[in-house]
Write a protein that binds this DNA or RNA. Structure first.
Length: 143
DNA sequence: GCCAACGTTGGC
DNA sequence: GCCAACGTTGGC
C-alpha cells in the first residue's frame, strides 16, 4: 500500500481535532493544488499516512489512514476541479519526528517534505515510511 | 512578522 | 501559449 503525508497548520486543523473526529474521519478539504489533488485521487482505502504540523510544531505527530476515496471537495462546490479523500486518526507518534530531525537524516534527504516544501499532500516511499516510523519510536510500523 | 519559493491566474 | 503579476505557503 502507498503512504502519504498530510500537512496542516495546528491553528486551523490540529492532530487533536483529527483524533477527536474519531473513526468516521474527516474530509481533507481545502487542497487547491493539482499535484496534491492527484495524490488524493491515487489514494486507496486503508493507505496509511503521516500527519504533520506545519508552521507551529514542524513535526510528524501521528498516523492516519484513508477511509474514503477521493470525492468532490464540499468546500469547493462551485469548482468541480477540486476533490479530496477522507482520513481518520490511527495513533500518535510515540515521539514526534521534527522537520529538523528529518533534514538531519541522510536517508530522508529525498523526502518530498524536504524537496517540495510547499506540497501539502505528498507521497512517502516505503523506505521513508519505515525510517520515520523508527525515528518516532514505532517498533511495529503499520503497513 | 518577514520573505523566499512557487503555483495559479489572467492579459496579451 | 507565454509570462508577469499576484497570492499563498511555510520555514525561519
Amino acid at each position: 500500500m502507498a503512504h502519504w503525508l498530510y500537512k496542516s497548520e495546528p491553528s486551523s486543523w490540529s492532530w487533536q481535532q483529527q483524533k477527536d473526529a474519531g473513526a468516521k474521519g474527516t474530509e481533507w478539504t481545502g487542497v487547491r493544488n493539482y499535484l496534491a489533488r492527484n495524490n488524493m485521487r491515487a489514494m486507496q482505502i486503508g493507505d496509511k499516512g503521516f500527519f504533520y504540523h506545519s508552521n507551529d510544531g514542524l513535526e510528524v505527530v501521528g498516523i492516519v489512514e484513508v477511509c474514503a476515496l477521493a470525492h468532490p471537495d464540499s468546500t469547493a462546490k462551485d469548482d468541480p476541479r477540486w476533490e479530496c479523500a477522507d482520513i481518520r486518526a490511527v495513533r500518535d507518534m510515540p515521539n514526534p519526528v521534527t522537520l529538523k530531525d528529518i533534514k538531519a537524516n541522510p536517508k530522508l534527504s529525498q523526502m518530498a517534505l524536504v524537496t517540495s516544501m510547499r506540497l501539502s499532500v505528498q507521497p512517502v516511499t516505503d523506505d521513508e515510511w519505515l525510517e520515520v516510523c523508527r525515528m518516532g519510536g514505532l517498533d511495529n510500523p503499520p503497513a
